[in-house]
């Protein structure tokens, strides 16, 4: 229809802006609102509404059951405590030391594997390729060298001060256990089982109840205190925090396992050849 160019356009019906009225219940909205204050429906597309509010009774019920992750963490840690008790009670540096170690390692391996199997969905996810690429498989192995150097220096100073001389090799070689055993029990077992237990199971379960960094701190503390040596508490805590950060950053256990294996291997090799300073 042609309009007369000389006249101004006719005023139409009053224009109500789209955001002004809730499409579900017709209530008038305030400017900038994301949800209708009367029926709770989202105003804009792509906005999800929060879940319906629970009744007090439902909240009470949910709260009662909310501590199950914490109970699981404590229960799992107790297993490691028992292993620690046995290893100290049967301690010594005689020929039985390696056999005791084998027994404890078999126990912790079984318990950890069993626990992991029970929570296999979350645990299997952790064996994925690290987020961030393949460099996260190489970087931990390289970083393990300066870290092992620092720890070795600290332990060396401590042993000198106490007057004790402890080496892992002294438990193995004089009693007929060779490199295969020492690598298996000192390098592979901790890298596999301790990482699965502390970074895999403990830290992941804790993340259900607290922020990632808090979970890293608590699991690192449990990891360091589990070695039952207060002088080594701080270095092992920092080491555990680094491993926890690796697991958090890559959402994978592989970097932490590689780091732990490399670190322990360097410590053991250093007992025979000067691979580390000091």
């Amino acid at each position: 229809m042609e309009s007369d160019p000389g006249l101004p356009p006719e005023p139409g019906p009053p224009v109500v802006p789209e955001w002004a009225i809730c499409r579900t219940c017709g209530n008038i909205l305030r400017e900038g609102a994301s949800f209708c204050p009367d029926c709770g429906h989202p105003v804009r597309a792509g906005v999800t509404r929060p879940p319906p509010r629970l009744s007090a009774r439902q909240i009470l019920y949910d709260v009662q059951g909310s501590n199950s992750p914490v109970r699981r963490v404590l229960g799992f840690y107790l297993i490691w405590l028992v292993a620690g008790i046995v290893s100290v009670a049967a301690a010594g540096e005689g020929p039985a030391a390696v056999q005791v170690m084998m027994g404890i390692d078999a126990f912790t391996f079984t318990m950890t594997a069993g626990w992991a199997a029970a929570f296999r969905r979350e645990v299997f996810r952790l064996f994925r390729f690290p987020k961030g690429g393949a460099r996260w498989l190489a970087y931990p192995a390289l970083a393990a060298w300066p870290i092992a150097a620092l720890i070795s220096l600290f332990v060396g100073w401590l042993q000198q001060a106490i007057g004790a001389e402890f080496t892992y090799s002294s438990l193995f070689f004089p009693h007929g256990y060779g490199w295969g055993w020492i690598i298996l029990l000192i390098c592979i077992q901790p890298a596999l089982v301790e990482e699965l237990a502390f970074r895999g199971i403990l830290q992941t379960t804790l993340r259900d109840t607290m922020k990632s960094w808090d979970a890293i701190v608590v699991s690192a503390l449990a990891f360091s205190i589990m070695h039952w040596s207060l002088p080594i508490l701080v270095p092992f805590f920092l080491f555990g925090a680094w491993l926890g950060w690796l697991r958090h950053r890559t959402e994978s256990l592989w970097p932490a396992m590689i780091a732990h294996f490399s670190h322990n291997l360097l410590i053991v090799l250093d007992e025979h050849w000067p691979v580390l300073p000091g």
């Binding site: 909205l29 949800f35 204050p37 009744s55 007090a56």
Partner: peptide, 27 residues
């Protein structure tokens, strides 16, 4: 207003919940 315009949280409890005084006091 029954719902928060900003995050959609239900501010007013439902009528059934309002009758459940025992649970609310327990909470």
């Amino acid at each position: 207003e029954k719902f928060c315009s900003s995050c959609g949280f239900q501010i007013q409890v439902s009528a059934a919940d309002a009758r459940d005084i025992g649970a609310r006091i327990g909470l």
